[in-house]
């Protein structure tokens, strides 16, 4: 076929040469090797370049189709190299992460986390519940005069109720004049003296009694006291406030009730109980309408203002909340107890 110009071998053998390069690519084991293969294939003596150079010997009528063949060959090689490169990268990562395998259950050591005492937690929770109801938090000293602790609260000297408090007296000033407060109620008087009504306060705090420690009593314990002084306040407001607190703190399905009782500083006086969803009752604390003598001691006119007060133990709360059977355990400072909270 003399009229058909001869096809240069650089072009006729291009397919086979590309196949050889592709085989090299398939067997390449690293990214560097692939780079070398690619530059050899597309370099000066590589099959693509030499095929391009041979194009001039090709009949012009075929040149276009031959040119496309050469371009396709180059693309094929580049695509293969890229595919192989991706494959190799995945394999390398796989190999690397395999080599880095860890057993996360065998980790040694724990950072030391601290713990807030469950009493503090209960105390703050109670504060927050009342703050949400518009109360502020009042405080007073632990070491009190007997006037604030007793006289001002309608418990005059010689009153039998004084003995009921099992007071711890402090050697300070006149004998019997200084006492570790037996309840948070002195804060009522101090607040009334310091602040004009209306008064909406709670007074959480540490209190002291001459009690031998047992599973439910400690000589040093904690109470929270509430006092409201405003116009026209009575027992109904006390009941409503206790009920609102009960539902806010324990949940909607809890309820409260008042029943008559006796305290020197309130009249009428009431014990308040909380009813659990199962219907059972929990005796919680004491309350009542502030006795006119107490208002007077605080410098407030009982004809103009009236109020109610209530109080209960925080320790008992934590005991019930966390199921602490022996309250003493909460105050031995045993880390094995503390770190549970």
């Amino acid at each position: 076929m003399p009229d058909i110009p001869e096809i240069p071998s650089e072009i006729s053998e291009l397919g086979a040469r590309v196949s050889a390069v592709l085989a090299q690519v398939e067997s390449a084991e690293s990214s560097d090797e692939l780079t070398a293969i690619l530059s050899a294939a597309t370099g000066k003596t590589g099959p693509i370049t030499v095929a391009r150079k041979a194009m001039s010997q090709v009949d012009p009528t075929h040149r276009k189709s031959v040119g496309m063949r050469v371009q396709d060959a180059k693309t094929t090689i580049e695509t293969a190299v890229e595919a192989r490169r991706v494959g190799l990268g995945a394999a390398e990562r796989t190999a690397r992460v395999q080599a880095e395998r860890m057993d996360l259950t065998e980790v040694v050591g724990t950072p030391t986390a601290g713990h807030i005492h469950p009493l503090t937690q209960a105390w703050e929770d109670l504060e927050d519940a009342f703050i949400g109801m518009g109360f502020t938090v009042a405080e007073g000293p632990h070491v009190e005069t007997d006037w604030y602790n007793f006289d001002a609260l309608n418990i005059p000297k010689g009153h039998p109720a004084r003995d009921g408090f099992d007071s711890l007296y402090v050697n300070n000033g006149e004998e019997g004049s200084t006492v570790l407060r037996t309840h948070t109620s002195p804060v009522q008087i101090r607040t009334m003296q310091a602040q004009e009504p209306p008064i909406y306060i709670i007074a959480p705090g540490r209190v002291f009694r001459r009690d031998t420690a047992d599973a439910t009593h400690l000589p040093v314990f904690h109470q929270i006291e509430g006092l409201v002084i405003d116009k026209g306040i009575g027992l109904a407001h006390l009941a409503g406030t206790i009920e609102k607190f009960t539902q806010a703190f324990f949940g909607e399905e809890f309820h409260s009730r008042l029943r008559p009782n006796y305290f020197p500083f309130t009249e009428p006086s009431a014990e308040f109980d909380i009813q659990r969803p199962d219907g059972s009752w929990l005796e919680l604390g004491g309350s009542g309408v502030v006795h006119p003598n107490v208002l007077r001691a605080g410098g407030i006119d009982p004809e103009e203002w009236s109020g109610f007060a209530f109080g209960f133990g925080i320790d008992r709360f934590l005991q019930i909340k966390h199921g602490v059977t022996d309250l003493r355990e909460a105050f031995t400072n045993d880390i094995r107890f503390l770190e549970q909270f």
């Binding site: 502020t136 209306p198 409201v228 609102k244 008559p260």
Partner: peptide, 16 residues
């Protein structure tokens, strides 16, 4: 005491 209807006094203070 159970027959007394509850009322809730409204504190004009901001609890804080």
């Amino acid at each position: 005491f159970d027959n007394i209807e509850n009322q809730v006094p409204v504190s004009i203070e901001t609890g804080e």
